[in-house]
Design a protein around this nucleic acid. Structure first.
Length: 896
DNA sequence: CTCGAACGCGCG
DNA sequence: GTACGAGCGTTCGAG
């Protein structure tokens, strides 16, 4: 190694991890000292921003493996006792298509008649060709010239070939459909509603694993005298009794949500401690070795169990698909898991989950607060993800179809109106009415040509300046609003808007703005604008822009929110199970396939899509959300006395802001003035500017304000809550030093741009530094709450299960009072950042009990001494779009 | 024909 | 050129 590489640390962040950590630069760059001394020394040394001075864990060599199958309950109990001794339970499920799923597949195959239909199509193709050849031969018998015969033969041949090709295309479609369905079928083991656990492996310490083959077509299985259902139940019950409910055993699974989801299928809940080395590894790598993550949007990609085991321990694990392929089978349960590669494959995952957990938690301990955050917030939250994915939300298919038809009709009507309007307003080069294709959303190239080339409507806004290439005119909602405004007021440039406020002298119609000596510059401009003729397409243009806004709304609602959701309905549950991941920059959740966190609000949706989300039979939806959550967190983080006072005394922050903006006393603030203050308040948390505020007013509130007015408002907010701008300066200063921004429980977001020489990058990073502690702390607090909800559901479920087994003990009223939450009756099914959705028995006592417990938990101070009151509000509904107050509902229900 | 960029829009 | 975070559907052009 070159000396420059060892000591020249200009650009160095953290060293790269290698399979041989002895070679890692962090260990070798300084004189060898004892680890403790070294740590102390590193703490004392001033480090570069983003450098955590990690001492990479020493990797112990792999030992001879003790992998073996377990086939009896006695062996299982003994092995779990071992886990109790070590305090470690590394585990992994192998799953397969369930019997029902396999039956459904066989039925589908039978109905699809793949081979039969394919043979039929190909026969038809062959017949068509043969027929063509026969008819060409017949031409010989007819009276015609050679040339005629050749032409006729050519025609017949072409027609026959075309018919044959059509049959072959049908055969190809059949192939494609079969392949598609088969791919879907082969993925069913990932879905607990279509799959089943066939094998489990259990690791109490590195290198020692027992594999439990529960249901396999070959080899020994667990308790072979039992039915497979009974064996699986015995296995899960035993795990639950000895391990899952224990608060002393660390349950470790790589990609924990998957294991948790399958546990939920059997009504099992895993109490903390719960570890997932996928989370600990990626979270650590993001901070100490960010170069290892090529795509920050998908930080876990390339960091699965197998690549990590290779990179960290130098061990190449078996490949699942290859093993199946080599054995010529579709699913794992067709292999023997009691010996050979089936056994080894199962065992390895649990073994290396434990080893990776050990390794990365040693790294986490060297990052301030990270071990705590991972152990108490982030890793246990994987259980919540698994649970919410397991349940999903019921989707009202019939109503959805009705709404789909309505949306299609609305979209088509808007499309027809646009076409007709363009025909009337615009002629093509030949003087004929112009035919235009508006597409689904009215944003095709043809439409752009109509608007900007034919009609020459004014351009209000150009495309994204941060993107390379020419800035084309924008047609987003803001642009459409501004274009309409410009037509109304004869503006050629939006910058002229300010002249509309200029007071015109009497008789301005007759004044020549170019020569009159009594005018100032502004008056001249104003008169010039007012004296302009109307745009030749003023009326048609305004109508067209209105239609453009409508068709875009309909297109979005139809494609993304009706059709785009319905297609994800699970074939078994009929529900929509969206996926969640924690991979966001602020530690928030995200949701996908479909995104369950962006369902349109009723006030912005002509079709009421939230009403398509309904509870299951005998159930009701219970919603509870933090009120003003991020602003409360901001009040704490900025330590702003005024904001804290407002939130703690039930005051009205929007009104207070309005007072500062208008200079009027609080009693005289009008409803409009209060509404005006709202976006300004929300904006400050993002480091908002007057420009952004202006856009929000225009697009969300339909109010036009000048930049100066918006600037005044931004300044008013900063004056009213002086702690906030101070906080924003302080947090940036700190981030420039440390290289990161941090949340309440310790998540850290690296901000490489914070010291950039590029002003834009630096400012962006500065706003992120200010926002991350707010948005990220809100996310952390929500995760802590949901972790406790999960634990409570687990506790209630366990208690009721034990009562069933051991005989009744408590009455339902007591149960609801002390353990209000339990599986299958009070289920947590979704999270939308500051809101949790539950599906609960349609019973006022149950709803009240859940409401009371969850509200109380949510309103606890996030940390001791937290100065701001936290409030949560509950509501219920038989559809997402039909919320009512939860306490009132329960009262009425009891009365009825 | 497939894939990705650009654009636009839904949510907190 | 100036608001934070996220996912997805449509359109269009490159490969």
């Amino acid at each position: 190694m070159k000396l420059g590489g060892m000591f020249g640390q200009q650009k160095q962040l953290a060293p790269r991890v290698t399979p041989q950590p002895a070679a890692a630069p962090a260990v070798t760059k300084e004189a060898p000292v004892a680890a403790g001394q070294k740590l102390a020394q590193l703490v004392a040394t001033k480090r570069k921003p983003g450098d955590f001075g990690i001492v990479w864990p020493k990797v112990k060599p792999q030992q001879v493996k003790d992998y073996a199958p377990i086939t009896t309950q006695v062996e299982l109990e003994a092995w779990l006792d071992r886990c109790l001794e070590t305090g470690t339970f590394g585990f992994d499920w192998e799953t397969t298509a369930s019997r029902d799923t396999k039956e459904r597949w066989q039925e589908w195959l039978a109905g699809f008649r793949y081979q039969e239909r394919k043979d039929e199509y190909l026969d038809h193709a062959e017949e068509d060709r043969a027929d063509g050849r026969r008819r060409i031969r017949e031409l010989e018998l007819q009276q015609m010239t050679k040339k005629q015969r050749e032409a006729a033969a050519k025609k017949i041949g072409r027609e026959a070939e075309n018919r044959a090709k059509e049959w072959e295309a049908k055969a190809a479609d059949l192939d494609a459909e079969y392949e598609f369905q088969r791919e879907v079928y082969l993925k069913t083991p990932f879905d607990p509603h279509q799959g089943e656990i066939c094998t489990a492996s259990i690791c109490p310490e590195p290198h020692r694993v027992r594999v439990v083959p529960i249901e396999h077509k070959r080899g020994k299985v667990f308790e072979p005298m039992l039915t497979r259902e009974a064996a699986r139940k015995l296995f899960m019950d035993t795990l639950d009794r000895k391990i899952f409910r224990s608060k002393d055993v660390r349950k470790i699974a790589f990609n924990g949500p998957f294991e948790v989801k399958y546990a939920a299928k059997y009504g099992k809940y895993l109490q903390k401690p719960f570890a997932d080395p996928q989370l600990s590894s990626v979270r650590c790598i993001q901070l100490v070795d960010p170069g290892r993550i090529p795509d920050p949007k998908k930080p876990a990609s390339g960091l699965g169990l197998k690549p990590q085991t290779l990179q960290t321990f130098g061990v190449q694990l078996g490949n699942f698909e290859e093993i199946l392929q080599r054995n010529g089978v579709d699913f794992f349960d067709e292999l023997d898991a009691s010996q050979g590669e089936g056994l080894v494959y199962s065992a390895e995952d649990a073994d290396y989950a434990v080893q990776l957990d050990n390794y990365w938690m040693e790294v986490a301990r060297q990052i301030p607060k990270y071990e705590d955050w991972l152990d108490n917030i982030e890793m246990p939250f994987g259980r919540v993800i698994g649970l919410m994915e397991y349940w999903g939300m019921r989707w009202d298919e019939d109503l959805a179809e009705q709404k789909r038809q309505e949306a299609i009709a609305a979209q088509e009507q808007a499309s027809e109106d646009i076409k007709q309007l363009v025909r009337e307003a615009v002629r093509d080069e030949d003087g004929n009415p112009l035919e235009v294709n508006p597409g689904k959303g009215g944003k095709t190239g043809e439409m752009k040509a109509v608007i900007f080339d034919y009609m020459k409507l004014p351009v209000a806004k150009l495309g994204d300046p941060t993107k390379k290439g020419e800035r084309l005119p924008s047609l987003d909602e803001e642009a459409l609003i501004d274009m309409e405004f410009m037509l109304q007021h004869k503006l050629h440039d939006l910058k002229e808007e300010k002249y509309l406020a200029v007071r015109l002298p009497d008789g301005w119609e007759q004044i020549d703005p170019n020569t009159d000596p009594n005018l100032d510059k502004e008056q001249r401009e104003a008169i010039r604008i007012h004296q302009r003729p109307d745009h030749p397409h003023k009326e048609a243009g305004i109508k067209l822009l209105g239609l453009m806004r409508k068709i875009q709304k309909y297109a979005t609602l139809l494609s993304s929110h009706i059709e785009g959701r319905g297609k994800w309905q699970n074939p078994v549950t009929g529900r929509i199970h969206c996926n969640y991941t924690p991979w966001t920059e602020t530690s928030r959740l995200n949701a996908s396939k479909p995104n369950g966190q962006n369902v349109p609000r009723l006030d912005n949706d002509a079709f009421g899509i939230r009403n398509l989300y309904i509870p299951g039979p005998g159930k009701i939806l219970f919603f509870i959300d933090f009120s003003g959550f991020e602003l409360r967190i901001l009040a704490w983080r900025a330590n702003d006395g005024v904001m804290i006072e407002i939130f703690n005394t039930g005051g009205d922050m929007h009104k207070t802001t309005a007072v500062e903006m208008t200079g009027k006393p609080a009693e005289e603030i009008t409803k409009k003035e209060r509404t005006d203050a709202k976006p300004a308040n929300f904006g400050i948390a993002y480091g908002g500017t007057e420009h952004a505020l202006q856009t929000v007013f225009k697009t969300d509130y339909g109010i036009r304000k000048t930049l100066d007015e918006c600037l005044d408002m931004v300044n008013a907010v900063k004056r009213a809550y002086s702690g906030v701008p101070q906080y924003q300066v302080d947090v940036v200063t700190e981030a420039r030093d440390t290289g990161y921004s941090e949340t309440i429980y310790g998540y850290k977001r690296l901000l490489p741009g914070i010291n950039s020489s590029n002003k834009y990058e630096r400012n962006t990073a500065g706003r992120q530094a200010g926002n991350t502690p707010i948005q990220g702390s809100a996310a952390d607090v929500m995760k802590a709450v949901q972790n406790d909800v999960y634990d409570m559901i687990g506790a209630g479920t366990t208690l009721r299960y034990d009562m069933d087994e051991l005989g009744p003990d408590l009455g339902e009223a007591e149960l609801l009072q002390y353990f209000p939450l339990h599986h299958g009756h009070t289920d947590m099914i979704a999270q939308i950042h500051d809101e949790i959705i539950f599906e609960v028995d349609d019973d006022p006592d149950t709803v009240d009990a859940v409401h009371k417990w969850v509200k109380d938990r949510m309103e606890q101070p996030p940390i001791p001494g937290f100065p701001v009151k936290i409030e949560a509000e509950g509501s219920v509904g038989y559809a997402w779009g039909k919320k009512q107050d939860a306490f009132q509902w329960a009262r009425e229900k009891r009365g009825a």
